[in-house]
Each structure stands twice: as C-alpha cells, then as structure tokens.
Simulated assay, not measured.
Amino acid sequence: MTTVLLVDDDMNILNLVELYLLEEGFHVFKALDGGQALSLLKKHPFDIAVVDVMMPFLDGFELTKEIRQKYDIPIILLTAKDQLHDKEKGFSSGTDDYLVKPFEPKELIFRMKALLRRYARSDDEQSIIQIGQTFIDKRSYEVKTNNRTILLPLKEFDLLYFFMSHPRQVFSREQLIEAVWGIDFEGDERTVDVHVKRLRERFTPLTDDFQIRTVRGIGYSLEVHTE
C-alpha cells in the first residue's frame, strides 16, 4: 500500500483530499504544518509527500528542502500562487511537481501516480555511475571526484546524473527539461543553461574527466575525456 504524507494548514482541504486518496487505496497521514510533517517523517516511511506552500512555522518551500535532504521520495507542492517565479522557487527547493489551487483531487492523483511510476523506474536504474575518477550515486545523492565529495542541489544532481548516464549523446534543451524537470514544467528553457553553467563552474576546476559541451543549434552533450 502506498503511504502518503499530506501537509496543509487547511483542515477542509486535508479532509477532502484524504477522502479521494483513500478511495484510490492510499494510506494517508495528515499534518497541519511543517513541524508535524517532520515528526511524522521520523516515525513512518512514506512513498510520496503532498505539501502546501503557505503554512505557519515552516513553509512548503523550506519543508521541501528538509525532506529532500533526508528522504528520497517524490514531492508535489500545492499553492494558490500561479506566478512563474513562485514555480521556479518551488522547483529550486526540490519539488518534483507543482499544482495550483483550486485543483481537482483527481488531477492530483494522476500526478501522484505518474511520479510514483517515475521513481519506481529510477530505482531500477544503475545506482552508481563512474567516469574516470568521478562517481555519482543515485541512492545517496552523492558525487565524488578525485576523492572529494560534492553536494549538489537536486536538479543539478539529476541533470548531471542524466548526462553521465548518456555520455557523448546530444540532447536538446527540451529533451533535458522533459527528462529532468518533467513534461509539466512550465519554466523557461534557459533554466537548462543556468544549471549547465553551475555544473561547469563546480567541476571544471576539479576534474578533466568530462566536460558538458555546447552543441550549437541543438543543445548539450557530455564529452568524456577518459576511457
């Protein structure tokens, strides 16, 4: 049975969404704020978290960061704000998906099931990938290069993992967004450029095992310098 952590300071929304989730066979734990959510996370294993943005004590963005640092579960943020910078902030905090209120509970369930399928596939992927003296571990979210551990924000890690999983292949920005951010991402394609720039700034001084190469007119490719 899939166990859901449902976090919202509006009890009416909690109860309504819980009814739909129970009908779909989910096991639901409810929390009214981020503090309660963190307490539940320490006591119970969860398969997915659905988190409201506007909450007292610890908002959804900060709670998402806390969850992402310690638990490898998909996260959906719920918000009444439909502004692009709010969505960007949500994805930067580590959320996998973003749903604007008011929403249809059935749409939330569709998105939850899609994320759970995506995470199930990722569990089947090769956990550790090595290129030269650089290692990336999907399970621990660690990157090591020349015996030095590098801690990356979630989307930088996911982007690097995707590149290292497909060396020498050329991908367009659109393909990278779909693979790393998901097909529902509504941000600008320049998000890819920003994340590639950050990865280059981090790794170029540390290793010559690989380089993220710009393919003019197409996108990017991971060029491998070692065999």
Rank of each mutant, 00 (worst) to 15 (best):
T149R: 13
F135W: 14
A114S: 12
R200P: 12
V7Q: 02
K87C: 08
K106Y: 01
M164L: 14
K70D: 12
F203L: 11
D137P: 15
K70W: 07
L32C: 05
A37P: 07
S39D: 03
R68H: 05
D52R: 09
A114F: 01
I73V: 11
E178F: 11
E104M: 05
L84N: 02
I128M: 15
K138R: 15
L22V: 05
V4A: 06
R121E: 02
L63N: 00
S172P: 06
F157M: 04
K70N: 14
F61G: 00
D9L: 06
R198E: 09
E107L: 13
E156N: 05
D33R: 01
F171R: 02
A120R: 08
K42N: 13
Q69S: 11
T214W: 14
I48K: 01
K106N: 13
V192S: 13
Q69Y: 09
D124V: 06
I13L: 15
F26M: 06
F57V: 08
L115C: 02
L19H: 10
Y141M: 12
K101S: 14
P205T: 05
Q169F: 02
R68W: 01
D59Y: 00
E174P: 00
I177H: 08
E174C: 00
I67T: 00
N146W: 12
E223G: 03
D9M: 07
D96H: 09
K87Y: 10
G217Y: 11
P205C: 06
K89P: 04
I13N: 08
F91S: 10
L108S: 13
L58I: 15
G182E: 12
I129H: 13
F57M: 00
L5N: 01
D209T: 05
G187A: 04
V143W: 06
F110R: 14
D59A: 07
V51A: 09
E142G: 15
N12G: 11
L21E: 10
R216L: 07
T3I: 01
P102N: 08
F26E: 04
V7E: 00
K87T: 08
M55D: 02
D193T: 15
A49V: 05
L115D: 03
L22F: 05
T79W: 13
V194M: 13
R118H: 04
F26K: 07
L151T: 10
R118S: 07
A120E: 09
K101N: 09
L63G: 03
E66M: 06
N147A: 10
L115Y: 01
E66P: 00
D52E: 14
A179E: 13
T204E: 15
L77T: 02
L159K: 04
Q169Y: 07
